[in-house]
Design a protein around this nucleic acid. Structure first.
Lengths: 341, 341
DNA sequence: CTGAAAGCGCTAACAA
DNA sequence: TTGTTAGCGCTTTCAG
């Protein structure tokens, strides 16, 4: 107790543990890192000292010494339309829990897409979508930082990505409507600048073409994913001179809005209009008729992204993997077979 | 180019910059840290070398050397009911943008509330709510880590907190209904184990008491914030023998569900039932009648929490501040004066 | 199986 | 105004 007191009560370090257990710091380090080359009796002594002193190794010192970092950055564009969606929250949750499980630190970066990221000290990066921030991705790739892109299928870059088969999911949805006998099938798109929305539109078109149903421009309504625009689209859709009998909507929250509008206009769902959404947002479960929709494995996608990143980090070299997860149709009550009246 | 190549291409360090600019590493350090005691000519030399070499200081080395960390951890219970709310996303967004602005690193911790947090290397912690993870808070406080609690008013602990005046907001809502002439006012609560829900119930009761309106237990419907339970509550509420003429609902998403149920049961909003929500969730804007609600300054709360944490960190001692932000009524179209039929 | 010692990259006295 | 030097706490050869 003769030691000079520093102003800040010094953190207990590996040295304190070494002293307390009568071994060298090297041995303590070995115990911490679970090296097997430590005599059992020593291991026990060290472990009990660790417990007594409530020792926690300094992550900074560890990282400085090893050059390794177990920090994973999740980069999300701070762009309202995208951020405020069911999707963002699921993503954060999925990535967050997986990081927690893998003992990785999750650094959240809400980016405006233009200021370059400070990626120093980051072990790997997950880009959620890449809307306008391709430059950031290329930058991190150039620096050799393990990166994976999520929710965006990247064709032209040598990078791991894991996305959902939006086109396939959309086809499933539209095929289902076609099987029910519908011919006049409309589509309300999402923000077409996102790959998801673009692919869903593509899938919609493909499905119609394959069944030799003509694509009608007046049956395609473009929106930004917002409920406000969905409302307008729905009104136009329903009040049209030759209205569609079914509609595939690019998101559940919009689909719910369409349902609401239809009811306000005196239409019955599904009698007067069949509706399929996309997302499997739990909100679709409530309400008088359950919303038929396309389920995307968001949580799984998020979790896979962390695993893939981990793989890349362990590999110490770039060996990208491109994964496309299927999106399956979930049939509930918002569609019915088409019948001539 | 005669230097032995390491397997990993060594990061450029402060030393490289020093060499390149012909000064000592100390001077480089000074330039990096914006010390003013550097000759202008040297500063320029260093800065250009930094640019040329694309040098970025190692955060780990910096933190090891200074003992300071600019990492802010945001701790959110991984508890579904709470996590999947409008609120969580707003919080993350608010904290995230403010951290970005203040150049702080945001570490996201989705906790199961029972495993102790590894807070080593964290400069400060923001606890969003404290549901079941009080122990974690007390732990961090005991360790002297600057902490602030958000969305939960902590009376009995010496910790900074910043919350919303839920009771006051609820009173505003109910008073408004009373002013409109309503006497039979119901309340659909949120998850009463959260402080927000409990306080809203409290405010509801106070408002009634102050106006000498008796509190009827059969007018209080308990839920967990989910739309499913809101639906049931709404059905019971409307089908009751002596139904209320107005209802204050603890969240907008539930209020929207109540609206939907009412319509399904052939009721008109606001003619047959006046509704006030809580949150100011944008979803309330759409639909045939805008939802009257109580606005909570979530983003502001989130931002303030980061600022407060920053203050605490700079202060280097605990001088807690307790802040209660007002919640104001936003009148839209879902309420009308009560009239005897 | 263990320990001494040399870093990892940076900051902060202390001298000059 | 600048440089020297001693750490910060840990990992990791390399000898024992």
């Amino acid at each position: 107790m003769t030691r000079t007191r520093k102003s800040t009560p010094r953190n207990i370090s590996i040295e304190d543990v070494a002293r307390a257990s009568g071994v060298s710091i090297t041995t303590v380090s070995r115990v911490i890192n679970k090296a097997k080359t430590v005599k059992e009796s020593n291991r026990i002594k060290v472990m009990s000292a660790v417990k007594d002193l409530k020792f926690q190794p300094s992550v900074f010192a560890q990282r400085l010494a090893t050059g390794k970092s177990n920090v994973v950055a999740l980069v999300i564009p701070r762009y309202e339309g995208v951020f405020y969606s069911f999707y963002a929250l699921e993503l954060i949750r999925g990535v967050g829990t997986m990081c927690e499980a893998l003992k990785l630190d999750l650094l959240l970066h809400l980016t405006d897409s233009r200021t370059p990221l400070s990626l120093r000290g980051v072990g790997g990066i997950i880009f959620s979508d890449i809307i306008g921030n391709r430059a950031q991705l290329e930058d991190s790739l150039a620096k050799g930082i393990p990166s994976v892109v999520i929710n965006y299928y990247v064709d032209d870059l040598d990078v791991s990505c894991i996305a959902i088969d939006n086109a396939g999911g959309a086809q499933n949805a539209v095929n289902y409507l076609i099987q029910l006998g519908h011919k006049k099938i409309a589509h309300i798109t999402g923000d077409i600048s996102t790959q998801a929305a673009a692919k869903r539109l593509e899938g919609y078109k493909w499905a119609l073409e394959k069944s030799n149903i003509g694509i009608r421009d007046d049956y395609i309504f473009y929106t930004d994913y917002s409920r406000g625009q969905a409302r307008t689209a729905a009104e136009n859709l329903i009040k049209a001179p030759d209205p569609a009998t079914a509609v595939f909507v690019a998101s559940d929250s919009m689909a719910l809005e369409v349902m609401a509008v239809a009811r306000e206009l005196g239409k019955d769902i599904p009698r007067d209009l069949s509706i399929v959404g996309f997302d499997d947002n739990p909100s679709g479960l409530y309400g008088p008729v359950g919303l038929t929709t396309v389920r995307q494995p968001l949580i799984r996608m998020a979790e896979e992204s962390v695993k893939e990143l981990n793989r890349l980090i362990a590999l110490k070299k770039n060996a990208p993997k491109k994964i496309l997860l299927p999106a399956e149709l979930v049939v509930r009550e918002s569609c019915k077979p088409f019948t001539e009246e």
